[in-house]
Simulated assay, not measured.
Amino acid sequence: MGNIRNNVLTFIGNFVMAYFIFGEGTLVRPLNFAFCMLMLMMAVDWFKNRGDHTLN
């Protein structure tokens, strides 16, 4: 549950900062940026957790 909370908070933070950075008044670019960053973070978490499993 903590991983989901961290991803959601980071998604909101990325969206807010991208909204101020792009500054064109539309929501399309900030949403695209925040969604791509969310997918990247989830992929990195998946690859990190994949290597932690053992048969013991």
Rank of each mutant, 00 (worst) to 15 (best):
D52I: 14
F15Q: 02
A43S: 13
L38G: 03
F33K: 00
V8M: 13
V28S: 04
N14W: 07
G51T: 12
N14G: 01
N49Y: 14
W46D: 07
W46E: 13
N32I: 11
A18F: 07
I4T: 06
N49V: 11
G13I: 07
L55M: 06
G25D: 05
N14Q: 03
W46L: 15
D45E: 15
L31F: 13
L9S: 08
L55D: 13
M37P: 00
D52V: 12
A18G: 05
L31Q: 01
R29K: 08
N6L: 15
N3I: 15
V16M: 07
V44H: 04
M41A: 11
F15S: 00
H53M: 11
L55W: 01
M17Q: 00
P30C: 01
F22E: 01
V8P: 02
I12S: 07
V28K: 07
Y19C: 02
L38H: 02
F20N: 03
R29Q: 08
R5N: 05
A43V: 15
N56T: 09
R5V: 14
V16L: 12
R50S: 10
I21Q: 03
R29E: 06
D45A: 14
G51Y: 10
N56H: 09
F11P: 01
I21P: 00
N32Q: 06
M1N: 04
F22Q: 02
F22G: 04
E24R: 09
L38I: 04
R29M: 11
N32E: 05
F11Y: 10
V44T: 04
L27F: 14
H53V: 15
F11T: 08
L27T: 08
T26M: 08
T26K: 11
K48V: 01
D52W: 07
G13Y: 05
M17N: 00
G2N: 14
Y19F: 10
N6T: 15
F11E: 02
P30T: 04
G2P: 09
M41L: 12
M42W: 10
F33W: 09
A18M: 07
G23P: 02
